[in-house]
Design a protein around this nucleic acid. Structure first.
Lengths: 356, 356
DNA sequence: GTGAAAGCGCTAACAA
DNA sequence: TTGTTAGCGCTTTCAC
């Protein structure tokens, strides 16, 4: 137990004195570096224990490593992101590394700021979810510190990426809706982002895939894209508007689950049901499987993505220099929020309730 | 723009040289300390800009402050916690402080480890959500670094606390259920924790309040407490067992919203409805208000709590030494998951659908 | 108002 | 195998 409290100012010097050895010796022992006799190791360990010594990360950061990995995340309120963290944390348990998270307000495009804050703190590696940060900037950054990006489709040499196959996922959704018989399918997404990485952003790919699928199916003239300034905040209002218009779609494909939940809410608010409007989301957040929600969606394995990101980062820290770009296959999960469209002019049908 | 990249190794020395001044002068300017002429400030600022200089937090940490606040959080997957973070982040925007988050796996009682990791990184202050960490340890810790604890009912001199009035909240739930006519009310909670701070844990207080309320209402003999080893993971199974027993309750009060959602799921799985079993939760997470869920709950203003915690911490950092203990009043939010119990042996009633 | 100099606690060469 | 030494980049007296 610590003699001077959890953060007592016990220094390596104190330990050295107590153990009757040099500071360098202590340093070697605590990092278990090469070249220490068992006897010395024992004595030092005892002194460390007795004094409750904890190495200062700041001091470490000035010469060597900090054993800290930084992850930048926007929107912790979107349940998909905590999944990434859970995976990352799990991958790190048992390792000497500590994860610190820097939250970045996506509304203010804070990605740069948050990543810089991490780098300023001398982390040994950075994981980030910043779709809009420029590739060039990241390449520059990655010359300084190992970097793994999550959810980006661009492939640069300097940094690794872990991404889910958004095109495949979006195609699966569209195929499913077509198979149910839908033709008037609308897509709900956020504002267009005029960033350098525009085409590498998942939302943009899903949108593009939606368009392509509609074209290919011969419904090019029925393409309908609703944009919410802030997808999360404005989805409800946008969805309501969409549903009350004269050209009400029979199905809505939302760019991810959070806005999809809002569409569901809007459907209820408008006095409609899943028989009137089918809704599909994207991400596969847990609540989507709740019987009260039962949202058809595309499951991305966030935990696996987080784990993989950490693994890639540790490889980089260990010395790998060639870039790796991992693509995860997503799964379509069909639930009762998507149903065949109501036959035109026919009587209300209340059958075809998907699952439980 | 940075000339040497986002994390370029531009030091204060380089800036000093470029500006033709001493290192000390640069240091003063960037901290805007007292005693710099406007002319010097201008020159230094220009050099900083031009070189893309960023002070090393590690080096700072060795002498002065790091302008970093650390927050320890368990279960980011529970949507209530991100709310705390949102509040904390908001309170910090515009300030020179950066927030870093250390996730702590509650299953492994990692609170100590995570808090220590923060302190090792020389944060200027710590906010933590660790109900089970011992008060004595925290008192010791708070001698080293300012500490604000979230969701603890113990009151120590060394650290501040921000907590919601769990007794009032739980009482409100019980009163509501009694008023609806329920008598067989069960409570779903986690394993008893034999920690030093046992009586200061929100869950324990809610449980105790449940017991007391039942007693006071004269239903002491109907007290029924179901314990799940891990409330989040095992709630569903525990709830199913509870509902299939011979003594099925007419209402279930869950210790927080996440298990309450599982009870709702179990109700559906058992082929029952809100008319058979009323369900109430605690926290007021957003999804509770979704029409597909419509869960009666107690709203705790997490954002406000997070904001308040940061404010208290900044006060401490600014020099305050007397402890402050803030209690937030929670609000009961009645939704359609709680209804009058079905009159014994009477016909099914489908009215009384609360809100939308 | 400004600069010189002394460390903060640690690690990494190098010497012994 | 062990100890000595020289910084890492910054802040902070304390002279000027």
């Amino acid at each position: 137990m610590a003699a001077r409290g959890p953060a007592g100012s016990v220094t390596i010097e104190d330990v050295a004195r107590a153990a009757g050895v040099s500071r360098a010796a202590v340093s070697k022992v605590i990092r278990d570096a090469y070249g220490v006799s068992p006897a010395m190791r024992e004595r030092v360990t005892a002194a460390v224990e007795q004094l409750g010594y904890r190495p200062s990360i700041s001091a470490r950061g000035m010469r060597g490593k900090t054993f800290t990995l930084g992850i930048e995340i926007p929107e912790l309120s979107n349940p998909f992101f905590p999944l990434l963290l859970a995976g990352a944390t799990a991958a790190l348990s048992g390792s000497p590394y500590q994860l610190i998270i820097a939250p970045a307000d996506p509304a203010h495009a804070e990605g740069y700021r948050a990543i810089r804050a991490l780098v300023d703190r001398q982390v040994d590696g950075v994981i980030a979810v910043s779709p809009l940060v420029e590739p060039a900037w990241l390449t520059e950054l990655s010359a300084t510190v190992p970097v793994v990006m999550l959810g980006r489709h661009d492939r640069a040499d300097g940094y690794d990426t872990v991404v889910s196959d958004d095109e495949a996922g979006a195609r699966a959704v569209m195929r499913h809706l077509f198979e149910l018989g839908h033709r008037d399918i609308a897509h709900l997404t956020g504002e267009a982002d005029h960033a350098t990485n525009g085409s590498g952003v998942p939302q943009t790919i899903r949108l593009h895939t939606y368009r392509t699928a509609m074209q290919e199916a011969g419904f090019g003239d029925r393409i309908s894209v609703a944009r919410a300034a802030d997808v999360t905040a404005d989805a409800h209002a946008t969805a309501l508007r969409m549903l009350s218009g004269s050209e009400r779609p029979t199905a809505v494909f939302a760019c991810h689950d959070e806005p999809a939940l809002e569409v569901l809410r809007a459907v209820a608010d408008a006095g409609l049901t899943a028989d009137d409007v089918s809704v599909a989301g994207y991400d596969g957040i847990e609540i989507a499987g709740h019987p009260g929600i039962s949202l058809t969606t595309v499951r991305q394995d966030g935990e696996r993505m987080g784990r993989l990101a950490v693994e890639l980062l540790l490889e980089r820290i260990a010395g790998r220099t060639e870039a790796r770009h991992e693509v995860i296959a997503p799964d379509l999960v069909v639930r009762s929020s998507t149903r065949p469209p109501r036959p035109c002019g026919a009587a209300t049908r209340l059958s075809a309730l998907g699952d439980h």
